[in-house]
Design a protein around this nucleic acid. Structure first.
Lengths: 462, 462
DNA sequence: GCATTTGTCGGTATACATTTG
DNA sequence: GCAAATGTATACCGACAAATG
């Protein structure tokens, strides 16, 4: 029998005792999931403590633990020892970002594309490659991790970014997201924990969710994640890895100074973490800041998986990324590549290699940089943010909202006015931070004029 | 204190009591994993019953359960209620099959390639596509699940195979293995169970292992999986899905008659399973048996994910597969595609579409069929198996071994003689069956002559 | 800075289902 | 067909750790 009467106590969730069936923990989890998805328990709601709910339902409190845990692994909840259990911000909807089913007529500040205006140069490379003799070497099962000369091109591409590696430490996969999937499957297991920025790449959040890998948000400042916070986080729980985008964090655009990278590296080494370093924007930012970013991979080569996608810097439709890893990870990484992809199209890899070797890729990067410059300048006209810590050439900006808004309603209101943009909640790991932002992609509009029209609408909406 | 003295009893595994640390179940699992990988516990060994080992170690028997379960999810063990717990056949080594690091000089009967001799026709299509105007539509982020006209080509390709679907029920991904990854991630969770043939596609086994999805072997006869066995299996445990390759099961080459498909479908519907139907060989087998296979997807459209890869039938290097699913799965499948791939190269999709629409794909299939016919005829000369239940045009044969051999030693002996071939144990789910086989791929040798030389070596080795 | 609140983890108890002989 | 052997599932207990005030 319950000891207390709960009639007078307010309890944020009061499931029907009679609805409980055996197994209790499963039916409880089902009820909870239902009440969250149906909106009875809005995001941020603090659920009753395990012991209190258990008492109310007259069951053991660890049975509630189990029900909560089931929902937590689905990403519906977020629990903190000492504070309580809360409904996740992104519990109800998926935050997956894609260009699937966007209204045709909208101005897209949502998905971060890559200034597709430069694709005519890629077309040339496609024609050049396909005119060659010996095309058939690209049409078979051989070289699942890349043809040797393609890996050479990869190394050549990454050398200016500060990567020193040999051909056995590189593999070719199908874009950064694919690289993340491969890496998570190769080196982590369900239940593993990975430290991330409080706001991080939303598709990584979703991927981790589906692999049942737990992301632990670590606070940061204007230079990125805070080493002492990472230290605290590693002390408190068993963390196996860390995900970083030091050159330009998506969504905050923060460029992490080398000093900060070194401090983090020392914490990482001390706690034996595996680093996933996503350097997707590196090539686009080289030579534009006071110092060029030194990859964390070079500080910790034996524990880092470095991902260098060419989809942002060269061409988004030719799905390609290079992964650099240590010899000790090679076996696991190659096997994982095989399980997820078998191989990446050698034809696609060849097109990118051709662009790199011919030097045309550098032209593309230079062109995209100039487009990024113009777009950022225009953005600054509309939204001057003098203290913006983001990288000046970023393909997206992190715009602080003057007053709190309802995230998904705000997004859909703007969409109704013809602009797609994403609220910071989409990128949030766990429960809320005080400040709200918008991520405004500048690289998906076809022209400066379209960008201007979009910014106009955006400004008038704030 | 243990009640019995175990000094006289033979117990297959006697871990050191003193080595146990807390948490007990984890250190026990580690010791078990170590003793398996180091070969002290060879495949097939029956481990001590949970209660007996617990008594020996003076711990609760469910703690042993947990240690065993940990290893089981890693694919090291295989437990059957009533019978006991056994070390898996493929516990130690990975059975992943790839063309990575095969000795250059060997005759490959291992990996099932796809008679790459027809690739000159694909080269033509590459050139044709790249010469077209408007190539840039293939170089951006749009249409992550396929451009509409490419999906039309997909439907056109699958219509002769018996598939009726609409464009919203199709998506384009990067080959069958990639389709399997996407599907498992979209529709299953760690701990889910999927029924499979006792011998099944080894890369599917490895993928399931890495996703912690449990495969339940279901016995079959010469027509494939037995409905009554599936029924029994579903009754006994909570099974969520079933994986089938009805047109030509890899590795057994069994073609499942429509009658059997219908019987299985009724069991599947009764137990509410999700079907993953891998029809990778369908196009290559049409019109060669008394009746054409009717896809299970057509019998159970609302619960089937149908995978039709073009890597075997058209070209292996252009990584492409079509997935057909029900409207109710659409959201989850698209999201999963986005998480794993973002998108599949539209250029690659276009090349295959071009081959399909121009009719050239049919020529390729016809050519591959003729090559398969010759190869199978040659194989029959060397290894007449009058009662072979396999499909006559299969790209690989399931060769019964006259006497038992040591699986991995046999493989490496043959490799030393210049032939790579795989023993049936690689394809085995759980623990052993009585009969041993070899899977002999006929589609990876460059010529009939090379095939003949390989078969010669193989015959002399048996 | 310590007590309280709250979540986490590992081990245990019990009921049950299946296989085997 | 029944009893014994054996694995599975779920609830519960207690020690512990982190956050809060």
């Amino acid at each position: 029998m319950p000891i207390n009467s709960f009639v007078d106590y307010p309890m944020s969730w009061r499931p029907e005792r009679r609805e409980l069936e055996r197994p209790v923990y499963l039916s409880l989890a089902r009820m909870l999931e239902r009440d969250i998805t149906e909106g009875f328990l809005p995001p941020g709601t603090k659920l009753p403590p395990q012991r209190e709910l258990a008492d109310f339902l007259d069951i053991n409190f660890t049975t509630v633990t189990r029900a909560y845990k089931t929902c937590e692994l689905k990403g519906l909840l977020h629990a903190v020892t000492g504070s309580g259990t809360f409904v996740s911000t992104n519990a109800v909807r998926s935050v997956t970002i894609s260009r699937d089913r966007v209204p045709v007529e909208c101005i897209d500040f949502g998905l971060v594309a890559s200034f597709e205006q430069s694709n005519f140069m890629v077309t040339e490379a496609v024609r050049k490659v396909s005119a060659r003799a010996g095309l058939e070497q690209f049409l078979n099962y051989d070289n699942p991790d890349g043809i040797p000369h393609q890996k050479e091109a990869a190394l050549r591409w990454m050398r200016p970014l500060g990567i020193t590696a040999n051909a056995d430490q590189v593999a070719i996969v199908s874009g950064a997201q694919n690289a993340l999937t491969v890496t998570l499957l190769a080196l982590f297991e369900p239940g593993s924990r990975i430290a991330v920025d409080e706001h991080t790449y939303s598709n990584f959040i979703e991927l981790a969710k589906s692999l049942r890998i737990k992301l632990i948000p670590v606070p940061g400042d204007r230079s990125g994640m805070l080493p002492e916070e990472l230290e605290a986080c590693c002390r408190s729980t068993d963390v196996q890895g860390i995900f970083l985008m030091p050159s330009c964090c998506n969504p905050t655009a923060i460029f992490m100074p080398n000093e900060r990278r070194r401090e983090l590296a020392s914490v990482i080494a001390r706690h034996d973490l595996i680093v996933i370093e996503d350097d997707i924007h590196a090539a686009l930012l080289q030579g534009t800041t006071a110092e060029d970013g030194l990859p964390v991979r070079e500080m910790l080569p034996e524990r880092t998986v470095y991902i260098c996608s060419t989809t942002k810097s060269i061409c988004s439709g030719i799905r390609l990324a290079y992964i650099v890893f240590d010899d000790t990870m090679r076996e696991r990484m190659l096997r994982s590549i095989y399980h997820v992809n078998v191989k990446t199209s050698s034809l696609d890899a060849e097109i990118v290699s051709e662009l790199i070797v011919s030097g045309r890729a550098d032209d593309i990067v230079a062109y995209k940089k100039s487009l990024a410059k113009s777009a950022n300048d225009l953005f600054a006209e509309y939204f001057p943010q003098p203290d913006d810590p983001g990288h000046p050439l970023s393909f997206f900006r992190w715009l602080r909202l003057p007053k709190p808004v309802h995230a998904s309603r705000f997004e859909s209101d703007l969409l109704a006015r013809g602009v797609r943009v994403f609220h910071s909640d989409r990128f949030l790991v766990g429960t809320g931070s005080r400040e709200q932002h918008l991520r405004v992609a500048l690289s998906s509009t076809g022209s400066l004029d379209e960008l201007r029209r979009g910014l106009e609408i955006l400004r008038s909406s704030l």
